[in-house]
Amino acid sequence: MFVIVMIIMAIFADNSIIALPLGLEVKPLIATKHYAQTSFRNRDKPPGTPGFPLGTDYLGRDLWSRTVYGTRVSLSVAFVAATVSLVVGLTYGVIAGFSSPAVDNIMMRFVDFLYGFPLLIFIILLQAYFKAVSRAGATGFMGILTQIDRAMGGLFFVFIALGLLNWIGMARLARGQTLSVKQREYIEAARALGASNLRIVFRHILPNIIGPCVVQETLAIPGYILTEAFLSFIGLGVTPPTPSWGLMISDTYQALRVYPWECLIPGAALTFTTLAFNFLGDGLRDALDPRLRGS
């Protein structure tokens, strides 16, 4: 039984693992056209049209290429946001868990405090703010950020917003794990042997808590992808013509009855990617937690 779970996991993990190099390195080769290349004579062509394997959208842009490039957007959102949240959350959580109870208390109070914040609203507000400020002839620090953002097709601020949203849960988990590991005998032993705090953290605590944290982060990835799609849907995501799946869907969902492929293809891509990450996360959790294994 365990094997079946592993196989399912492996297949779907593979999918996302294949998607990775595709999205980041190989894709520009796979995409046959540039994502912003328009052609009015060929607008709204169905899949299977010669030259446009998945058809074209309302401006005659190749859907295959746009979807492939969209993979890049979604996956970079997923990985950057996940990395940011993992690094920040883990650091914060481990420091809190490893420090004296007084420091721990203060740090966790701050986390509790943020936990009460309506983060989605803040993301919307922040995105509105970034989008407005970044274009009003910004100078100085904001100007530099704006340059970066522009170079990334409006993705940079999405990363920041998502990262800000998600480190809190990670910090809580990391702290809890650290606290429980801290009491174990081998830490006592290491301490008795005169190991420095830094060594204990890096040699003994981190390796022991990183598993559950990574699993949790993997499970959060579909959420990031969907949040990006949501932001793009309400016009606060990436800048057109950068092809994000969310943007592609929001541009075309009104055309669902007439040109269904324009909406369903990025929709399917979105669904399958989240699906793959969900299976990966579930599988990792099942694999890492011996108690969940089939008997």
């Binding site: 039984m1 399912i8 849907f233 909406c263 979105l270 669904t271 989240t274 699906l275």
Partner: peptide
Amino acid sequence: KQNTPLDYTATFVAILGVSIPNMVLGPL
């Protein structure tokens, strides 16, 4: 019914449910 076809179906449907965005499901 862990690790039976029932489990797999339920799990698959559940994950599919999480993965379909509202903006696709609603108009559909």
